[in-house]
């Protein structure tokens, strides 16, 4: 069950997280609670998998390169192919989607050569073509995600 403090943390600090040496104390002061309450609430949110971390979202392709990749695989092989794809540490994201292209994943590597090698390797191991869809332009201004936590 999410408390008011949990909800505030989830909604108010996706973007406006204090940039200071003691950020949790600043949040505590903002919300009129103790620093210990903020630390405990964040630890709970993290342990219960409501948040993945407190940290930066880095602009794509500025440190290393990343690429979205799509594959069209027979449904009965999807699980085993997804497992092969997951086994690469360069893959950080892998979803089944409703389409003839039914497997969608993101590959991140230090440079383009390494990324190409990973894709080539995945194609050899799975026996299926990997369609790379690199980013040309990012239109999104990332302000975080406004959650409706009331219903």
């Amino acid at each position: 069950m999410l408390s008011d403090l949990h909800k505030h943390l989830l909604n108010d600090y996706q973007r406006d997280f204090p940039c200071s040496e003691q950020p949790y104390r600043e949040i505590a002061d903002d919300l009129g609670v103790s620093e210990q309450q903020v630390l405990s609430a964040l630890t709970e949110l993290s342990e219960q998998q409501f948040i993945s971390r407190v940290g930066p979202v880095i602009r794509p392709n500025h440190i290393g390169v990343s690429c979205l990749v799509a594959m069209a695989v027979p449904p009965e092989q999807l699980e085993s192919i997804a497992e092969i794809v997951n086994s690469y540490q360069e893959v950080n994201h892998n979803y089944e989607r409703e389409n003839r292209f039914n497997l969608w994943f993101v590959v991140i590597a230090a440079n383009q050569t390494h990324l190409d090698q990973v894709l080539c390797d995945i194609e050899q191991h799975t026996g299926h073509t990997a369609m790379p869809l690199p980013l040309i332009r990012d239109y999104f201004i990332n302000l975080g995600f406004e959650l409706n936590l009331h219903d």
């Binding site: 996706q14 979202v57 500025h62 440190i63 990332n142």
Partner: peptide, 10 residues
Amino acid sequence: LIKRFGIIVK
């Protein structure tokens, strides 16, 4: 370079 910094929700 950092698009945003804060809590990353699931």
